[in-house]
Structures are given as structure tokens and as C-alpha cells.
Simulated assay, not measured.
Amino acid sequence: MVGLVFSGRSAALFAVLAGIGLALSTGKQQPRSGAELWSARGGVAMRALVIAAVGLALGGLEVNVAVILVHYAVLFLCILPFLGLRLKALCFWAGGWIVLSPVLAYLVRPELLDANPPLQLGHNPGWEDLGTPARLLADLFFTGYYPAFQWISYLLVGLVIGRLALTTAKVQLMLLTFGIVVASIAKIVGTVAMEVWGGRAALSVLPGTRGYPLESMLQVNLTGLQQVDSWWWLATASPHAGTTLDLLHTSGVAAAVVGFFLVLGRLAERIRVNFLVVLSGPGAMTLSLYSAHVWVVSGFTNQPLPAGWTAEGMYWAQALCAISIGICFAVLRRRGPLEWVAHLASRLGSYRPAAVG
């Protein structure tokens, strides 16, 4: 049940929030321009390099977690040209990218997979993969777990949301309701296409799907399938499908979640109880906590759990530790260790010498 609820949606929310953060740090409703914009781009680029370095280091660990950080860093670099756009232009780009990028990816992916050897890593990107740049880039953009080419959509959606007047109740409720509507329609259309219009039947006879429990994968995760040889792949809204319907569904969920917590934050302000520190504390140091989580999990990968421990126990222990650490840093008004490094890099990248009069 947990997998059905979070698969595809949590990672997409992570990326949408990145876009919102970039919008808030580059002018909110009035995007920066001129020298200020170039300074902001430099800061974002330097932050991306830090995130990529952390991701490549984690890629060297033996762990059954699909580490997103290198892809995350690539998305930061790809979004740089869009940081100066206003809301109307961003809406146009976001809509176009959601519609067209899955089609282009579908056309390009077979060529990359048919190469000898296939341009696909099959593992988390690590430092050693820098020695095969074509394979690394193909995996990051098209053939890997988080195809950045389609995932640019999430950062564009995040930029759109971040350029709105997020402190107003009208916008908060709009995000909540509009997100629910879009997510619901996309999922319904995808399910009907697969189960009623014959999509699943057409896909199940393809050579690449034989031996896979296709019905289950359509519900939980399509990453293990190459999604080639049939246009029906573009008609599903399944998790990690990278299709237009999947992007719409997960973006809608992300918008609804953002709207919900903005409404919840408004309620917290009214009753003067900061109960959201339980979430905002860990949320302010996600890079450090995520990296620590991957490192901890790597210590138990392919190893028996300690006596008396269960997988559920491990999950709750890590969740409680993350919340506790986040609250402590929030109370002390300190950045997480990796957030401090990323912040320093951002400041260095955005530094502009004072003009000499």
C-alpha cells in the first residue's frame, strides 16, 4: 500500500519543490533580470555542482535506493535559461514540455538502447561513470531511472507555482483544488486507456514485457521496462512512466500537496501554534538527511538486520531520527552540514564584484 501511494509521486514532489525554491530565490512574482539574474544563475549552478558531487559519491555505495541527486543537479543546470521568464511564458513552456518531451523521448530512447553497448547505466551514477560521458548523459536524460529530459517539466511546474502569490488564500486553495482535479483526470484517462481501450493487452504481447507482471508494474513502477516498440506506452499514467499523463498526474499531486500545506500553514499562524516545525525542520535539510539515509541503508544492503529488527522498525527509526535531527537544527537556527556547503557554493557562484566608480 505504501508503494502504491508514494511511488512516482514523492520523487516528483521533490523536483517540483526544487522549482518552487528556485522561483522564490530569484524574485518570486517578479523574476530577476540583467546582472542580478546572471548572478542568481551562477549561484544555482554552483549549488548544482555540490549536489552532483554528493550524488556521485553516494553512487559508489552498494544500496538498493535509486539515488536522485545527480539527476537533480542536472535539472538545476537545465532550468537556468528559464529563471528569468515571467508567469505567462513559464506556463507556455511547462505545458509544451509536458506534452512534447515524452514523445521526443520515446523516439530517441530506442536509438540509445540499441547502441552497442546500450547507453544505459543500470546503476546509480558514480565517479567512475565520468569516464564514459556518452553513456552517463544518455542515462541521465533518457534511459535512466529519473529521465531528466521529461523531468524538466517538474521544475517548470515548480517555477510556475513559485511565481504565484503563494501567501494568498485564493492561490493556496486554487493549487489544492486544481491539483486534485488534474491529477484525478490524468489517472482516470491512463487507467481507461490501459484497461478499457486495450493498452495493457497490446503491451503485454511485446517481447520486452514477457516475463514481467505487467499489471502490477503498471500500478507500482514502470522503470524496469524499456517502453519501446508501441505507442501505447505513451497512454499510461503509471508511476515513473515519464508520459504526459504521468507528468500531469504527479504534477497535480505535487500542486495539491503544496496547496494543502500552505493552507495548513495559514491555520498554524491563526492559532499561533507552530506544529509544522515537525516537517519544516527536516524539510530545511533534505540534502543532509537524504544522504545520511542512503548511507545508513547501504550498511544493511544484502546484510541481515540486527536481531529483533524488522524492515518496518528500520523505517520508523530512520523517520523519527530525521524528524528529531531536523527539529534540533531548526530550534538552533542552523543549516544542515551539506546545506551549509551548498549555501557557501551558491554565494560564491553569485558573487559580483562591486563596480568601481
Rank of each mutant, 00 (worst) to 15 (best):
R32V: 11
W127Q: 11
P125Y: 00
S288P: 08
A66P: 00
G198H: 12
L156I: 10
G313M: 06
Q318W: 14
L156A: 12
D229T: 08
F300D: 04
M46F: 14
V258T: 11
E312S: 13
L80A: 10
P118L: 11
A354M: 13
S230G: 03
A105R: 15
F76L: 15
P304L: 00
I68G: 12
P337K: 05
V160I: 04
P117R: 11
S33I: 09
Y72Q: 07
G283V: 00
R9H: 09
K170M: 03
G179H: 09
V171P: 08
T167E: 15
L155N: 13
T250L: 03
F261W: 15
N64I: 05
V257P: 00
D129P: 07
N221E: 01
L100V: 15
A284R: 13
F149N: 02
H249L: 04
A284H: 08
I188W: 05
E111Y: 03
V205K: 14
R9S: 06
Q226H: 02
S10G: 00
A307P: 04
G242S: 01
A201L: 10
L305T: 05
A73I: 12
S216H: 13
V74W: 06
L13P: 00
T143A: 01
L22T: 12
T310I: 07
G252N: 04
L338W: 10
Q303A: 14
C321A: 15
A138H: 07
E339V: 06
V65M: 09
Y315V: 01
E339Q: 11
G126M: 07
F261G: 05
A73P: 08
W232D: 09
W316L: 14
L248C: 11
W340T: 14
N64E: 05
W309N: 05
E269K: 12
G259I: 09
N302E: 12
R32I: 06
A317E: 03
L37R: 10
E339G: 11
V5S: 02
A268P: 09
F275T: 02
V67C: 05
L58I: 07
A255Q: 02
S39M: 06
L159H: 14
R352M: 12
L222H: 04
S346T: 00
G158K: 05
Q30V: 13
C321N: 02
V50A: 13
L77D: 08
V205M: 10
G55S: 09
L4I: 12
A94S: 15
V205S: 15
V181E: 08
L203T: 07
Y106T: 07
S204D: 15
R347A: 08
L136D: 11
W127N: 11
W97P: 13
V74Y: 00
M174I: 07
